[in-house]
Design a protein around this nucleic acid. Structure first.
Lengths: 138, 138
DNA sequence: GTAACTGCAAAATATTTGCATCCTT
DNA sequence: AAGGATGCAAATATTTTGCAGTTAC
């Protein structure tokens, strides 16, 4: 499946700027999760810290990326699948964090199992966070 | 089941101090999750911000409490069940965060389903984070 | 008495906001 | 040309560290 960066930005009514193209490109290439610091390091001094904050925030609002709940409460982001739209994330997938190398994977192929919540509770989103050792570190 | 605060502290070779007793008491009474800010507000000026940070860190290290992965990446803690010991958490339970009132519940009774990870991946811990509306807000 | 714990001050880090300038459309 | 996006400076917020004084055992 091809992911068009320009397409995605246009579809979300965002103007095409260098920082947006490059940051979105990082996510597409990584296929994993990125933290603010990762982006900052990878991009060198190319753009401002603040621009990265604002770009990430915009992408989250537009449903292009989403935040990942992590056990260590570091803030990480990953690409949303196509079904996501503004304000309506559908990211009920499984995230895996490697204890050794720290890489975060989105395991799209594993579906989130159904849970029986207590009476009166309704779920809008379910995230599963698995930690352990990934294929490379095992 | 009775939870003895003094017992817990002794068992973990921690000296019995006011801040530790009071902070641990908050967790026992809440039966839910607490953030650093919650503790700070509930305790007024009784103890220092830094003491709270250090106490929480100590409790996590000893396996008395654990951090909860949250969708919004705020840092929250909850009591561990008895099986937890230093460095070995067994908190494969389900956490529920209410979108309306913000309360975090630990749904101990719901077990975490087994997942088939990709080849070479091994899991040491699985967290499930459900968000939606809780019984009170529905 | 000694080791561990706390409070205060300050450093380090992370995030947000305002505003002037520049770029996309 | 106009509105949105960026960079810079600075304000806030969050977390960590060092050290001296205090407390638990």
């Amino acid at each position: 499946m091809l992911y068009s960066i320009i397409e995605t930005l246009k579809k979300n009514q965002l103007s095409i700027t260098d920082s947006r193209k490059k940051i979105l490109e990082m996510f597409v290439k990584t296929k994993g999760a990125l933290a603010h610091a990762d982006i900052e390091h990878q991009s060198g001094t190319e753009f401002d810290r603040v621009t990265i904050y604002r770009t990430l925030q915009t992408f989250v609002e537009k449903g292009i990326i989403h935040t990942i709940p992590t056990a260590d409460n570091s803030v990480r982001y990953a690409l949303c699948k196509e079904e996501c739209s503004e304000g309506h994330h559908h990211d009920d997938h499984v995230h895996f964090m490697c204890d050794d190398c720290g890489t975060t994977y989105c395991l799209d192929k594993i579906s989130v199992p159904h849970l029986n919540l207590p009476n009166g509770f309704t779920a809008s989103q379910t995230d599963v966070v698995v930690s352990g050792k990934c294929g490379k570190c095992n």
